[in-house]
């Protein structure tokens, strides 16, 4: 019968890091997708094209908005990978401690 790990044990930390990394990666991809799959840089404003009826001039107004770009996506995934790497570090630390005993 498997024994449950105490919440402060290295294995529990590793599991928490792994879950956090998975959630971070998933959330980053979903947020990026929901905001429009922007393959350019992150935008802090969006441009709205309007037309003046009398002069027929197209002009742009800017509205504050956060549109994550490819830099946001790569940053989120890189953070998730870094967090996953911590999982291995914590696991190895545990094995090292066990082998010393």
């Amino acid at each position: 019968m498997p024994q449950s790990q105490p919440i402060t044990s290295p294995k529990s930390f590793a599991k928490m890091f792994y879950i956090f990394a998975s959630i971070l990666a998933f959330a980053t991809v979903v947020f990026w997708g929901v905001k429009g799959f922007n393959t350019g840089w992150t935008k802090t404003q969006i441009a709205l094209i309007q037309k003046d009826e009398i002069t027929e001039i197209d002009f742009i107004t800017y509205q504050d908005a956060f549109v994550p770009g490819i830099d946001f996506l790569l940053g989120g995934i890189a953070s998730a990978i870094a967090t996953s790497a911590l999982t291995f570090f914590v696991s190895r630390k545990k094995s090292y401690t066990s082998s010393k005993k």
Binding site: G40, I57, F59
Partner: peptide, 23 residues
């Protein structure tokens, strides 16, 4: 006063396209 007048600029480099306006 209506802010319609604008000068737009566009740059198309191999890795990045940049566009914007001044009014």
């Amino acid at each position: 006063a209506k802010g319609v007048n604008n000068i737009a600029f566009m740059l198309d480099a191999p890795l990045e396209s940049i566009s914007g306006t001044g009014n």
